[in-house]
Amino acid sequence: MVKPSFSDEIANLLHASHGNPLITCIQCGTCSGTCPAVDYMDHTPRRIIGMIRANLKDEVLNSNTFWYCASCYHCTVRCPAQIDIAETMYALKRYSIWKRVHQEGLVGPTFSETFVKTILRSGRSFEPILATSYLFSAGVRELIQEGVTATKMMLKGRLPMLPPRIKRLDNFKRMVSRVIPLEAE
């Protein structure tokens, strides 16, 4: 059995997008021309697709491109080759989390994992806990700004003090464990 190429591996992770595989990309750049966050990415989405196809696995996993995808799906609806680029970025995030390989200093991976843990613990998300993952990496100035915003919202009654949880939490946790094994808490 031939080892699947990086391109195949990523394509195999795309359950959701039964759309065209990356190999039909004509490198036209519509995705990167559309992307609202492209200025912050170290490689444009088009280039990432090219890099995947060239099997530049390490370079791809170490790029920030897919962590900076805002999931706006604008590239997806415009792609002339009908490649679901936004879902490809999700696939790369998943791959990166599983392989525990990502660019240093990125908040995205930690945040994602915290978020997931929160949901699995209570069934619902809770902003104040989510913010804690952020505390470790943000600078002092940003932290203060965040704090001010949070306080304002708290005063307007828009941030709750206690985390919400669903009623049938036991069932919920067992349901989740049928999909992925839960870590012992």
Binding site: C28, G29, T30, S32, G33, V38, D39, T44, R47
Partner: peptide, 11 residues
């Protein structure tokens, strides 16, 4: 006109 200059890799 918003476009990626694909030869430069910039929007």
């Amino acid at each position: 006109v918003q476009v990626e200059d694909t030869l430069l890799g910039i929007q």
